[in-house]
Every structure is written in C-alpha cells, then in structure tokens.
Nucleic acid binder design. Structure first.
Lengths: 197, 197
DNA sequence: CAGACAAACCTAGGGGCCCTAGGTTTTCGC
DNA sequence: GCGAAAACCTAGGGCCCCTAGGTTTGTCTG
C-alpha cells in the first residue's frame, strides 16, 4: 500500500492545521498519525518526540506569521506602518489561533540553526519603528512594550476576556492609536538614568 | 487509618502550589492524589473532573492575585497607583508563575456564583485609573490596553522571550513610565468617532 | 449507647496518550 | 536486479483521566 510520505516538514504543516482546529495542546502524536493514516509509532522516525513536533509547528507558524506582517508593512512608515503591523498581527492571530498560540512557545536553539525566522522577526519589528527615531536602549524598550501589548490583547481576546467583538475591534484601533501617541511622546532615557544597573 | 480530609477548597490550594512547581499543565489529578496520599479516583468525590479542578485553582489564584494588588495600591492615586499596580502585578506573576498562569484561564460561570473575584478585579482596576480622569468608553479602552500590556510583558518574560533579568526590570519600569505618559495624553474619542460602528 | 446514614475513600478496570525496541516492507541508487 | 537506507509496523510498558460499585469511617439520632 502507498506510503504516507511523512516528513518533519509535512508534520509541522499538518500540526499547524491541527493546532487551529484543536488548539496547540491538541496537536498530539496520535491525532497526527491518525490523520496520515499511520500508526503513531511511525512518527518517531521523523520527529524525536512530542516536544520537538510542537516546536516544529512553532517554527513553521512563526515564519508564516512574520511573513504576513512583513508583507503588510512593506512600503509603509511611521503610523501607517504601526497600524499595518498591528492589524496584520491581530488578523493572523484571529484567523489562526492555534498557529498563533504556537508562536508564543520557546524553541530549542538547535532547531533554529539554519533558519532566519528570528532575524526576520527582529528586522521587521525594528524596521516598523524606524520612523519614530528612537535610539537604544529606548528602541528595545519600545519593542518590548509593543510586543507585550499586542500579545496581551490577543491573549485576552482569545481567552474571551473581553466583551462584544465589534467593541473589541474599536478598542484595538484606539489602543493602536494610543501606542502611536506614546511612541511620539516616548520618555527618553538620557538623564539621571544608569544604563547598566 | 486517618483520612486525608479532602475538600474542593484544599484541592484548589494544593493545586496552586503544584502549579508553581510544575506549571499549570502540571496540576494533574494523579499528582495531587499522590501528594495527599490518596488514590486518584478519590478526588472525583470533590471535583467533577480535571477541568473543574484547574478552574478551582484559577479561581483561588485570581483571588490571591487581586488581593495582593489591591493591598499595594491602597491609599495611592495617579502615577503612584499605576506604578504600585504594575509592580504588584509583576511581582506576583514572577513569585507564583503557575498561579499566575492559572489566572489567565477562563472559568465556567457556574463556578463563579457566590464569589466576588470578578467584581473585586474590575473595581480595583478601574479605581487605579480614577485619577487620570478618563470617561467611558475611553476608560474601558485604557483598562484593556493596560491589562494587555501587563499580561503580555509577563507572558513574554516568563517564556524567556527577553534577555537579561536586570534589563527586563529596567524595561518594565520604563514601560510603566511610558504608560503613565500615555494615560495623560490619551486620545479622547469625542469627535469624528462613531460609537457603535 | 447502638444503629443508621452519609461522607470519604478504595479496588477494578477501560481507554487514551507518549515512547521504545525490534521486525518487515518499500524505495532508490548503482 | 540487488543491496542498503528509509518508511512503516507490531508489541508492549508506563502514565494519566475517569467510571462503577464496594467498603470503611465518622456523625447524628433516638
């Protein structure tokens, strides 16, 4: 009988789909095996264990995620870029909740060698902020604040922590608006602040 | 032989401790039974299933959490209150990672009847912002933004998404500082903005 | 104080999941 | 066509969740 043609890569893709259907916790060796019409033991030739399987899903989703954001902010700067970034971020997270959840997990360094996801993510994020003219260490602080806010918003929304969807959309817009104002009024760290303490 | 004296409440407390040691995913019926020197089947007299057990942990942790924050901001207002809120928030999350993780999960409404956790949380949060003089719907938007930012920051920090701990502390301080500025410059929603669209 | 009754706890067992060890079949390069 | 690597399988152990139904413990009551 025809073989399923398993690959670590194909498992990651199927795992990403599964994640959107069943949550990141729902990506499981046995369910994935079931979908490929294969015994669960067969997956262990391509993947060390469940942990690695999930990390591959994370890696795959993170690539998709940052690419869709990069596409959205291409050719934009300043507030335009911020809004595009934010909207693309949220759109992906809402369209692919499981994949997005995957991106929030750590990946072992050894699995990262040879990939550019990390670098792309950093470049895209810092690039989006360029027009605000922040310099280190403010830039890093601002990036952290933005990542935190976006992630926190999506996490709360996904968890049902908010009310009406329409309302959430407007709150999000106003939150992004507020972040724009914040970036323009960013409290600089020049005076009376030690850099390494 | 002496009975263990199990209770839904005692299970929740023990579950909270277990969560800090083994993560929220680590709170498990069998491990908890082991700690009480009891067979796992025995827990099902006090708790419907694993799901309910974890929700009780969530509820317990959420109470602890909001109480420690409320204590921290008592008698403060404006920026003082904001900073106290933020620091208490992060301190609890770092001291009790598992409990904090628990607070981010949903609880079935039926389990909420008779408790005041939700109301206390809302009151404390809105109270903290009172001095900034925001009115609805800006107030709700601001609360959402703050919750998001705080949660996002802790989530990223816990996940190891940041670098050096010292650095994170300073970034956090500056982030809170920035949020204070933001609240003072909050873009009001009076003009040119539809309320229900 | 004895019996009754309701908790509290137990044994037995089914099903699901992860993972290992070692065997069989397919595929592919030579 | 043949040998070897790769793909897949069977068998089985261990852990976990959960149910059904029995036994023990404590408490309440007459």
């Amino acid at each position: 009988m025809a073989r399923a043609g398993l690959t670590a890569e194909r498992l990651a893709v199927a795992g990403a789909e599964l994640a959107d259907e069943a949550g990141f916790d729902g990506v499981t060796v046995s369910e994935l095996a079931r979908r490929f019409g294969v015994k669960d033991a067969s997956l262990y030739s391509h993947v060390k264990n469940l942990r690695e399987l999930r990390q591959r899903v994370t890696l795959y989703a993170a690539g998709e995620f940052i690419d869709s954001i990069a596409a959205a902010i291409a050719g934009r700067a300043g507030k335009d870029a911020l809004v595009a970034f934010a909207d693309a971020y949220r759109a992906y997270a809402l369209a692919h909740p499981g994949r997005y959840a995957a991106t929030q997990h750590q990946v072992d360094p050894e699995l990262l060698v040879g990939t550019t996801v990390l670098a792309r993510t950093v470049d895209t994020t810092y690039g989006m902020l360029r027009a605000y003219g922040l310099t280190e260490p403010d830039l890093t602080d601002a990036v952290r604040l933005l990542r935190s806010t976006f992630h926190g918003y999506i996490a709360l929304e996904a968890e049902g922590g908010f009310g009406h969807p329409r309302e959430v959309q407007r709150s999000w817009d106003r939150g992004v608006q507020a972040l724009h104002v914040l970036l323009e009024h960013w409290p600089r760290s020049e005076e009376g602040e030690k850099d390494d303490d």
